[in-house]
Design a protein around this nucleic acid. Sequence first.
DNA 1: CTTGACTCTGCCGTCGGCGTGAAGGTCTAG
DNA 2: CTAGACCTTCACGCCGACGGCAGAGTCAAG
Lengths: 127, 127
Amino acid sequence: MRIGELARRTGVTPRALRYYEEQGLLTPERRPSGYREYGDRDVDAVHGIRTLLAAGLNSAAIAEILPGLPLPGQRQAGPTCPELLDGLARERARITRQMDELAAARAILDAIMGAEAPSEVIRTPRA
Amino acid sequence: MRIGELARRTGVTPRALRYYEEQGLLTPERRPSGYREYGDRDVDAVHGIRTLLAAGLNSAAIAEILPGLPLPGQRQAGPTCPELLDGLARERARITRQMDELAAARAILDAIMGAEAPSEVIRTPRA
DNA sequence: CTTGACTCTGCCGTCGGCGTGAAGGTCTAG
DNA sequence: CTAGACCTTCACGCCGACGGCAGAGTCAAG
């Protein structure tokens, strides 16, 4: 498919898709005309990229770890890289820390809401 | 205390502290010389600000909700503002969503690590 | 008085993930 | 053939939370 369709199927703008390619996250084929040609697997890849970006990973980190993504079987040209595992572990730790920070921030908000709410039942009790 | 001491006691640079003031998050007194004079409560305030910033709230949002922070009693000049609760709820929802996204991203990393790790015991099992 | 540490107010720089044109090729329906 | 939708490559703009520097004032110690 071409970039427009991939954009529609992923909810990501063409500009962002070109940016991902520039960062080495996607490597679509090219038609003789120069048009990019994407495969169906790229839909999943883009979703993965978006999830990882939303988690605060930068494109360099994603580029490093994303080659292991497809996950159909474990048949991957990957050399089961040693330093790759390092990067994965680091990012995982970052995410866990970030979750803790979010929990702390939410606790602050809850404390304020609890003090601020006119002694009603607490809204959105726990989620 | 002056800005340098507050900086040391909070681990935040003087530049950042001035920025927080510029954004209305801190309102230190001024000596006749123009020097900022902070109170002990500002130490806690800065920690709160840092936590909220780390959770992705921008300074405008923090400025909106932070007046309810001190929490010594509930004696607060606050009018138990109605729209304040709205902002609080919105930010809380944002945080919860963000935690979900982080969990999803971590799951991706775990999947890759699980496939990539040479069938050893999984590192950092659950945290 | 002088030195050195500290502080003040500007104001420009940075970084990442794009948005937003501009200027020009491609492709397909009628 | 032509219009219109789609695509290409530059290349500048943006935003938020500061970093960093310049030029100048403040203040306690010796």
